[in-house]
Design a protein around this nucleic acid. Sequence first.
DNA 1: GATTCAAACTTGACAATGTAAAGTTGCTCA
DNA 2: TGAGCAACTTTACATTGTCAAGTTTGAATC
Lengths: 211, 211
Amino acid sequence: MPKKNIKKSPSQNKKAYHHGNLREALVDAAIDILENEGLKALSLRAVARRVGVSQTAPYHHFKDKEGMLAAVAAKGFMMMEAAQNISIPGEENTAENILALGRGYVTFGLKHPALLQLMFGPEIPDPKNHPELMSEGQKSFNRILEGVTARMDEAGITYVTPSIVTISAWSMVHGLAILLIGGKITPEGVGLNNEEELIEQVANVLHKGLT
Amino acid sequence: MPKKNIKKSPSQNKKAYHHGNLREALVDAAIDILENEGLKALSLRAVARRVGVSQTAPYHHFKDKEGMLAAVAAKGFMMMEAAQNISIPGEENTAENILALGRGYVTFGLKHPALLQLMFGPEIPDPKNHPELMSEGQKSFNRILEGVTARMDEAGITYVTPSIVTISAWSMVHGLAILLIGGKITPEGVGLNNEEELIEQVANVLHKGLT
DNA sequence: GATTCAAACTTGACAATGTAAAGTTGCTCA
DNA sequence: TGAGCAACTTTACATTGTCAAGTTTGAATC
């Protein structure tokens, strides 16, 4: 066995798996493939290949392909949160806060279309089987709920509960993102020049409802 | 060739393919599989098997699997239109008309979750490649636009264009359907007993915005 | 330090899938 | 009648998800 003595120190070895970071590396590689080559190219084997492990290595970190997709979706929620935190620079205006959240949501969707679709799509038929994914989704809801509640208190709106308004708002921004991604609507189709203008106009409708 | 004389009249023969109905039969079978066994089970071969033709027969009617899925999605739009026509029995109240349209949309989504997800999901990465699908989506938009325009005229709303309101409304009902289907929100989660109640409450928010 | 043992990973295999290539069947019209 | 074209079949192959059976390795125990 001549190769035996080629010893790699684990610290030098870029791929120091075996304890620790393979799972994360797989998820990152999966997102990369998803965003650059599309859902069809996102196979377990392609992910393993990209990371440089055997085709069955992922099975030690995910139950099956769906398990991996769920992990990817969960990471998608985290990425969205991170993106939204950037877009709310400690504002105090509650109405503006909500609108910024909504804009951030749609903008994120346009920047990561395949990821957003995966997060809500049929590739993960029953999210209840994936606790991490569920809890990230819940966090997303709560983030919106917080802003909406503050705004409703401030504006003295009582004809509906904050939960209902939150659902309405989330529905709207999510729907808008998906319709744009899917090409069902376009800015040009309604006489606008770009997505930002469209987002702004729809945000106005939402805003009007919160006044 | 002994079988030769077993002559089947095309009209009697249930499977009188060879001119005519194979394409439609394939789409129907695909929807059946999609709704009863899920997206994962929806393979070209499974569809062909169910219809009783060879595995490559579908290629004479669809460019590839994506082509077939696009046809399924297009049919989904048609089914939705049919379902909505039922739910609007010649009403004259324009506001109620729109709400009925919205209710119909969400209800359809809950009845056909996998189909709705396919219609907007990443399995058809670029709908522009599928004219039939695009045109059905356009019809869907126009149907909402019609109702919204009438309502806005009636209510004298001018601070936004009907197109923007249509997009907002479509976004909202679509988002709501998808969030419900994906289990991201539940009626119980906001203290309601069933989907209908939730739909009604969200419809109220929408209605308020159109007053 | 040697031993042991579970966790992390690999090798090899198999059935199912999407799809290309080449052939066959059978309407339809000249 | 027969010629041609569209509808379908057969065969084949690379790729995929996943299972079963190893092998490696890092750390805990003696």
